[in-house]
Simulated assay, not measured.
Amino acid sequence: MVSVTVELRNVEGTRAALGWAGGHTIVVDRPQGRAGGQGLGFNGAQLLGLAIGGCFCNDLHFVAAEMGVELTKISISVRVELESDLSFTKAATVTVSCETSDGSDPQPVIAEAKARCMVHNSLRRGVPVTVEAVA
């Protein structure tokens, strides 16, 4: 089994968090004025959208390389729809456009990336999440 661990810690003097994995970092916060948020970073819905779209973007590149196709332009937009109380996501829609260097139809690459996308597959199947408090 392969696993990935990310870490988050509060940013002193704010109510934001700094998250990291390896040498990569990201700031997580709430919108300005919401529960002490200062809008210093991405909120949960934005992070979910970035995970959905970012994973799909990466898989487009993996699949294209395996198929011997060069993608020259990729555009992905993710719309995350939340329940009115913001307690869960009702739906997410990914809109993708890409072009190949030889002008061939990119649909086979898109279809295979859709079938393989780890984040999409995980969300569709439901991922158990356990929260464990430690002293």
Rank of each mutant, 00 (worst) to 15 (best):
A65Y: 03
G39T: 14
V2F: 01
T89N: 10
R15F: 14
T100E: 12
R34I: 15
N58T: 15
S87Q: 13
A133T: 07
S87R: 15
R116S: 04
D59L: 10
E99L: 13
V131M: 05
F42P: 00
D102G: 14
A135L: 05
S3I: 09
D105M: 03
A111K: 06
M67F: 07
T14H: 06
G49A: 09
N43Q: 06
V129I: 15
S97W: 10
G126W: 03
K90R: 12
P108I: 11
K114D: 14
C55W: 06
I110L: 15
V80I: 12
G54Y: 07
L86S: 02
C55Y: 04
T95A: 09
C57D: 14
T93D: 15
E7L: 00
C55A: 06
V94L: 13
K73P: 02
H120R: 04
L86R: 08
V109P: 02
A64P: 05
D59T: 14
G103A: 10
V119E: 05
A64H: 05
G36A: 00
L40R: 00
A51I: 06
H120K: 10
H24K: 13
Q46D: 11
P31G: 12
V131N: 02
C117V: 01
F56T: 08
T130L: 03
C117N: 09
N43I: 04
A133W: 07
A113W: 03
H61P: 00
F42K: 02
S122H: 07
G22V: 08
A17I: 05
D85C: 04
A111H: 03
A133L: 13
D59G: 02
T130H: 04
P128D: 12
V4N: 00
L82W: 01
P106S: 06
T100H: 12
I26L: 12
R30M: 10
A65P: 03
L60T: 05
A64C: 06
P128A: 13
L8R: 01
N121F: 05
E70L: 12
I110P: 07
T130V: 11
T14W: 01
G54C: 11
L40S: 01
N121P: 10
V69L: 05
L40I: 01
G33W: 09
D102E: 14
Q46R: 07
V109E: 04
L47N: 08
E7V: 00
E112N: 09
L86T: 06
R125I: 00
V131Q: 00
E70Y: 03
A135Y: 01
E112I: 15
T95S: 10
A45H: 00
A133Q: 07
Q32A: 08
V129K: 05
P108D: 10
S101W: 01
E83T: 13
G53S: 11
R30Y: 03
G126Y: 02
C98I: 11
I76K: 02
V80E: 03
K73D: 14
S87C: 06
L40G: 00
G13P: 06
L8M: 11
D105A: 02
V96S: 15
V11G: 04
S75M: 08
